[in-house]
Design a protein around this nucleic acid. Structure first.
Lengths: 149, 149
DNA sequence: CTAATTGCAAATTATTTGCAGCCCC
DNA sequence: GGGGCTGCAAATAATTTGCAATTAG
């Protein structure tokens, strides 16, 4: 089990870089970190507004982008828009083709795949990421087909 | 080396499904298949119009989506918009962080990663895909840093 | 204090849709 | 010749930006 307590709170590092820790900013980061699956900007916006109703969508977008640039969270392009991931540690993703939810799964062990690509292509490989697709436990139990919905 | 000759020309299969092989449709598929890297809808649109200047952007979008649904090409969400891939065989991708180009690379051998995920999560894993990130050969030779551009 | 940050509204960008006419099969 | 397809233009959806007012440090 991974909790936020185990992840060093890089808010102080942010402050050191001249970023201010405003109420909306803290809350946006909290919401993303507390999220079960990987929320879109719109979802973050709705959750943030439950506690701070004056926050604008523009502020949510600005902060999500800034926090991603600062390494406090990860930004990922998806069909239907960007999604944000409060887990910055190494891990892979599983996308349920039925319900669309995206789950974190433990990272696959690295067995020289990067080196192999580099050797074959002459490219400099700096990072890699694996995505899995299928049917999650909940949808499986409900007997929902991944094709017919 | 994989060539289009080895991929059965599923245009006939399309026709069998009641789809018509119009001039724009053929050309759109040709353009995507002939593309070096993975074009956006806008890029496909520009290339198609070089040969068929009356084609509209809406037609390009409609056909890209339809051809993807029919399995003639693959659609992938990326920062900056959707991209399309004429190579429907199994392969992974390498994204150059300097120039943004996306290259096909041979698929990593499957070593039980899917089974492992299934065992740990109880999910039904149907597919998986690995993305590599780094600096491509051209950008490397030009000495462009992946950070400073 | 004062520069970063915000809310609001308007601007961009990406993608989809409605519909009358066109053209594959 | 009839229904799928197309072009055009207008509609949505997603994201960004300008700017005066606000606020953290």
């Amino acid at each position: 089990m991974i909790t936020n307590k185990m992840i060093p709170d890089n808010l102080d590092a942010l402050r050191a870089r001249g970023r201010r820790l405003t109420r909306p900013r803290r809350l946006i980061l909290d919401v993303v970190r507390a999220a079960d699956t990987h929320p879109t900007a719109a979802v973050v916006y709705r959750r943030v507004r439950r506690r701070l109703p004056r926050v604008s969508l523009a502020t949510v977008y600005r902060n999500l982008r800034m926090l991603a640039a600062e390494g406090c969270l990860a930004e990922r392009a998806h069909a239907g828009g960007l999604r944000f991931d409060g887990n910055t540690g190494p891990h892979d993703h599983f996308t349920c083709l039925v319900c669309g939810r995206i789950y974190d799964v433990p990272a696959r062990a690295e067995r020289g795949g990067r080196r192999r690509i580099a050797a074959r292509t002459g490219f400099e490989v700096l990072d890699h990421r694996t995505e899995y697709y299928g049917r999650c436990g909940a949808c499986r139990r409900r007997g929902r087909s991944s094709v017919t919905g």
